[in-house]
Amino acid sequence: MKKILFFIIIGASLHAYSQDELKRKQQSIQQKNSENKEVPPPTEVSPNDPPPLPKEPIVFKINPDELYKNNILYKKEANVEGIFYRRNEFLGSFVTNTIVSTVRYRDAAFVDGDKIKVYLNDKVIEPEVLLDGEYKGFKINLVKGINKIDFEALNEGSASPNTAEFQVFDDKGTVIESSQWNVGTGYKATIVLYKEN
C-alpha cells in the first residue's frame, strides 16, 4: 500500500512540474529558410469552381444606348410594369491584351430549358445552346480593337426570364468578367472586349 501511495505522489508532482516547465519554455518556432518564394496558383480553372474575382479590370467606355439603337441587330425594349427583362442587357466592356479569351456559361437559376444563340462581332458562332448546370463555352481569338459577344435568348425555359451565369477569362486563366444576365426571348446580353495590341 505504501508503494502505491508513493507512486501516486511522485506521479502527481512530476505532472505538475512538467506543466509548469512547459509554460516557461513555450516559444514560437522560427522558420529556417525565410527566402522561400510563394508558389503561383495553377492557371487551369476547374469547370465547376467559382472563378476568382477579377482585379479591377480596365473599362472601355461604350454607350449601351448607342449600341442597342440598331433595330436590325437588337430587339426594341418592350418592358411593361412588373416585367423588367424585356430588354437587352449590357454586361460591360473591358480592355485586355490577351490573344485568346475563354467564355463559359451555364443556367444561373434552376435548370429549366433555357436556350441561347452566341454571336461574335454580329456573326453566329453557336447557333443553339441548351443551358444546364454545367459550364459550357468556347475559346475565341481576339482581333485588335472591338470584340463584341452577344448572347441571344432563344426562349425563357419553363420559368421566365432566360437566366445565365457567364465567365470570361484571359489566356492566363484570369477572370476578366463574371456576372449574370436576365433577358426575355429575342433579347441579347452583350459584353465587349477591347484588345489593345
Rank of each mutant, 00 (worst) to 15 (best):
P40T: 10
E196D: 15
I116T: 03
K2V: 12
T190C: 05
I176K: 09
K136E: 09
K2P: 02
D20N: 15
L130A: 07
A16W: 05
N197H: 10
G137P: 14
R24P: 00
E66G: 08
S158Q: 13
Y105L: 13
E66V: 11
K188R: 12
E177H: 05
R104D: 10
D112E: 14
V100G: 00
D20M: 13
K76N: 13
T98I: 00
G145C: 10
N162H: 02
E66F: 14
D49T: 13
S158P: 03
R106S: 11
S13K: 01
V45L: 08
P42I: 15
K195T: 09
Y68D: 03
D49H: 11
A108F: 15
A78V: 00
K76H: 11
E89G: 02
T43L: 09
A159C: 00
G137A: 05
K76Y: 07
D107M: 06
G145P: 14
A153K: 04
Y105E: 05
L22R: 02
N63I: 12
Y17D: 01
N182P: 00
N141P: 00
D49P: 01
I83C: 05
E44K: 15
T163R: 10
P51G: 09
T102M: 07
N97K: 06
L91Q: 10
K75T: 07
D150E: 14
I9V: 15
P47D: 02
T163C: 03
K123M: 09
S13C: 14
S179L: 04
K2D: 13
L120K: 13
F7Q: 09
K23R: 11
A109W: 12
V111P: 03
N36G: 03
G184P: 00
A109D: 12
G145D: 13
G133R: 14
T98A: 15
Q30R: 08
N33C: 03
F169P: 03
K115F: 06
I191G: 01
G92M: 04
N197I: 13
V111N: 08
G186H: 10
K123R: 15
E128T: 06
S93Q: 02
K139H: 12
Q26D: 12
N33F: 10
Q180M: 08
M1E: 03
V124F: 11
K75Y: 02
D114E: 13
K144H: 05
I29C: 00
V143R: 10
D171Q: 15
E81G: 10
V111A: 14
F6P: 01
V39D: 01
F169C: 04
G92I: 07
D107E: 15
P41M: 13
V168L: 14
A12Q: 08
I116N: 01
S160F: 07
L67I: 00
N88S: 08
F110D: 10
K172F: 15
P41D: 13
L130H: 03
A159Q: 06
Q30D: 11
L5D: 11
K75G: 01
I99W: 01
S160Y: 09
V129Y: 00
I191N: 02
P161V: 01
L73R: 08
K115S: 01
D171V: 12
N197R: 09
Y135W: 06
N97A: 00
P42G: 14
S34D: 00
I4T: 07
